[in-house]
Design a protein around this nucleic acid. Structure first.
Length: 375
DNA sequence: TCTGGGGTCCTAGGACCC
DNA sequence: TCTGGGGTCCTAGGACCC
């Protein structure tokens, strides 16, 4: 199940005066990008991922709105609750998309075809938002079926129809084939799924490696054994910011890294997790991007420890003289449930706890990251 | 036109060990 | 003195998805 132009549709729901107009939910120009464009806006060529400034040029009469994620999350919860009436196996892919495993639900809810129709009618009726639904023998085909039904449709792909459904599609419509892989395939004259299916497994592996080749071979045949998994453990948590203007002051850059590390610490604590790996990401004016990571002796959620590690990683990065810093990011990986109190051998655990409580009470802008604090 | 923020998974090279 | 082959862990980068 995949919601149609979800963020834009929620805005139209909340602002009836916007309905039928080109609504574009986007980060602010000049550096923002389009998150979702309504179908009305798509007529002008506006697409998600497109820089906001370009969307403004293509569609000057567009209604440009900043995202309101909390509101979208509210609607997403309503939608998930509906899906969960039909199966306990609901796997959200994002706020606006989810897999529902209907295996074995027939006695309770009737045949999957009927359930798909039910969901397709019920979600718009109960949430006021349009959705597309795809039914297939596995996740790959359900996903591709719903894509082919957009907007507002329902598509059923039965096992015997799999190849005739996939064959005429361009390879880039396969879930997992992006622009790079599509371009490499096009160089070899492979444009449709049928073309791809005619390439032998061994040739694909010689081009894309063992795993890559096998993945393409299976995609072309609609083979997918991935189970529907209702709850996945997070593998990493991160925060990153693209600055309205590039940063040049090393003191300010370091202060920003510490601020982001504190945000990551907040989230680790909220989710009751400890991290043993700290990562930073730096993107320069020319868009070159690098990452540094390090493994800690023990997992932690301590804001000062995490900030110190992140700052240490930053000190390993040589910022070219002609480059400013466009983006900074801090991430945590190697996550463990915080079942036991971490040892915190070197930094007072009570200080970390106090910082967490201050930020809970007064907000994440505390303490001030002036850039003046020493490293 | 100039490229967000949050993720996942894969590859490749080097260190280290047996 | 110089040498294999395999495995694991760590790090950096890249492709892809929403």
């Amino acid at each position: 199940m995949d919601m149609d132009a979800f963020y834009a549709a929620v805005e139209e729901l909340d602002h009836p005066e916007f309905r039928g107009k080109p609504v574009i939910v986007a980060g602010p120009a000049p550096r923002g990008v389009v998150a979702t464009a309504s179908y009305e806006a798509r007529k002008f060529g506006v697409r998600s991922g497109m820089p906001t400034v370009k969307a403004q040029r293509l569609c000057p009469q567009g209604i440009f709105l900043p995202p309101r994620f909390e509101r979208y999350e509210e609607k997403a919860r309503e939608i998930r609750a509906i899906l969960q009436l039909y199966s306990p196996l609901v796997e959200p892919i994002s706020l606006d998309e989810a897999f529902v495993d209907l295996t074995g639900t027939e006695l309770l809810h009737g045949p999957p075809e009927k359930v798909a129709e039910d969901i397709h009618k019920r979600i718009p009726k109960e949430t006021g938002l349009s959705c597309s639904v795809g039914l297939g023998p596995n996740k790959l085909l359900a996903k591709m079926a719903s894509d082919s039904a957009k907007p507002g449709g329902l598509r059923i792909v039965r096992p015997e129809e799999v190849q005739s459904f996939l064959d005429p599609l361009p390879v880039e419509e396969l879930w997992g084939i992006g622009p790079k892989t599509a371009a490499r395939l096009a160089e070899k004259g492979i444009r449709t799924v049928r073309d791809l299916r005619e390439v032998s497994l061994s040739l694909l592996c010689s081009w894309f490696g063992q795993k890559g080749g096998e993945a393409l071979w299976r995609l072309a045949r609609g083979i997918d054994e991935d189970p529907v998994v209702p709850v996945r453990e997070a593998k990493s948590i991160s925060h990153e910011t693209t600055y309205p203007a590039d940063l040049f002051d090393p003191v300010e850059i370091a202060a920003e890294v510490r601020r982001l590390a504190f945000l990551v610490a907040d989230r680790l604590r909220e989710e009751k997790l400890l991290a043993q790996t700290v990562q930073i990401k730096v993107r320069f004016s020319d868009f070159t991007t690098l990452t540094r990571q390090t493994k800690l002796p023990e997992p932690t959620d301590h804001p000062i420890l995490l900030a110190a590690e992140a700052a240490g990683l930053l000190s390993r990065v040589k910022i070219p003289v002609d480059q400013g810093v466009r983006l900074l990011g801090v991430g945590a990986a190697d996550l463990f449930p915080a079942r036991f109190q971490p040892l915190h051998l070197f930094v007072d655990a009570k200080l970390g706890e106090a910082l967490h409580q201050i930020r809970e009470k007064f907000g994440p802008e505390f303490p001030k990251f002036s850039g003046a604090s020493p490293r």
